[in-house]
Simulated assay, not measured.
Amino acid sequence: MLTLVTVGHGSYDVDFESHPCRPGTLLLARPGQVIRLGDQPGLDAVVVYWRDGTVHVDDPYGPSRWQLAGEDEDAVINEVSQLVVDCQRNRSGERAAALLRHQLTVLLLRIALLPTGGDTGPAGTVIPAGTATPDGTVAPETAGAGTFERLRAEVERSYAQTRRVEDYARRLDCSVRTLTRACLAATGRSAKQVVDDRVALEARRLLAATDLPIADIGRRLGFPEPTNFGRFFQREVGRSPGAFRGGLRRPAAVRVPGQRRPLSAATRWDPVP
């Protein structure tokens, strides 16, 4: 889901990280992420959302925020405006659907070419080797970059089944030491911390956006005993699961993942499809 702020100032949370918003702020929320947009008088935005699988040009680990300016802002606004017009004028038929997919692809490709810098990416995001860094230089090739990307993909597939770095090392046919070096180089955190970070993120998503009992969430994430899940969550997040859920003050029965409904004026947590 893309959100382009057009008027006003405020904040927008994606996966529990708050992003400041002002005219020209562009935010991208990806499948499975949890978003929160408060009731902020005077803040207006254009929201574009689509079903997962409609297009395949986004980097799932890429930046999630840009502050547009100059020609980049003009280009993105033009693409978004044309997409909105065609959504309103062409609502049915294969040709209309093909046109909208093409326009969305062009918009996402244009966004992928935007310069990155500042707070554009989530914690732990690395600049791929061979791409431009914020200062205009080119990130050097590193031996561990490919290993880290492979680990990250495997963690995404298997974080609910295992948190043991030894299991990931075996699946990737390398040593625990190699995984740890690659993670430290990419994120400054050990391989074990990278795995635990992903489990803790999913736990927060489920606590925020579902009404599943805490024990069921723990079992879904590989903790047969609720006490073990509680200790893990307290260690990683700094609060108990119950205290975390109670502090969100969210409306009931909003689940992840699911088809995203249009934004309302009220504060709420919503899934991204």
Rank of each mutant, 00 (worst) to 15 (best):
Q82S: 02
L184I: 01
F244W: 15
T137N: 15
D135K: 10
R101P: 06
D58V: 00
L151W: 12
V46T: 12
R235M: 02
R36M: 07
A96I: 09
L37N: 13
G53I: 01
R51Q: 14
T120W: 10
R239Q: 15
R36T: 04
D196P: 00
D216C: 14
A191N: 05
V155K: 03
G118E: 06
R22G: 06
T162Q: 10
M1K: 11
A203L: 05
S64L: 12
V195A: 11
V106C: 09
T180W: 07
V194L: 09
D13G: 00
D119V: 03
P224Q: 00
D167A: 14
G62S: 08
V194D: 02
R177W: 00
P20L: 06
A145D: 10
Q40N: 05
S18Q: 05
D52F: 07
R36S: 06
G247T: 14
R261Y: 09
T227E: 15
F223Y: 04
L206K: 13
A153P: 03
G188M: 08
A200C: 13
L114F: 03
S264K: 13
L100P: 08
A96Y: 08
I77E: 12
R22N: 01
G32H: 02
L100G: 06
V199A: 11
V237C: 12
V46Y: 10
E166V: 15
G24R: 09
L104K: 06
G117T: 00
G53T: 11
Q103N: 11
G238R: 14
R110T: 05
A132C: 04
A45Q: 13
P115T: 06
V138N: 07
D216P: 12
V55F: 14
L27P: 05
T125V: 00
S92M: 13
L100W: 07
G144H: 09
V80F: 01
D86Q: 15
T54A: 13
F233D: 10
V272R: 09
L179Y: 07
D211N: 15
G222N: 09
D216H: 15
T116D: 02
V80P: 01
P241I: 10
F229E: 03
V237F: 14
A132K: 03
W50R: 02
E202R: 12
V14C: 08
P31N: 05
L107M: 04
G258S: 13
A215S: 14
V272Q: 13
P122T: 07
G10L: 04
L179G: 00
G24P: 08
S175A: 14
V176E: 14
R189S: 01
A203Y: 04
A129G: 12
A69W: 06
H9F: 05
D211P: 02
G222A: 01
V57C: 07
I77V: 15
V195W: 00
D270E: 15
G124S: 03
G144L: 02
R110K: 10
R163C: 13
A208N: 09
G10V: 04
L201P: 05
R110Q: 13
E166P: 01
L109Y: 03
F233I: 04
E149K: 14
L109N: 15
T267A: 10
D270C: 12
L2Y: 11
A208T: 04
P23C: 09
K192I: 08
M1D: 05
E154V: 03
A191R: 06
L248P: 11
P262H: 00
A75D: 09
V256Y: 07
C174P: 00
R189D: 05
V46L: 08
R189Q: 11
L4M: 11
A203H: 06
G144I: 08
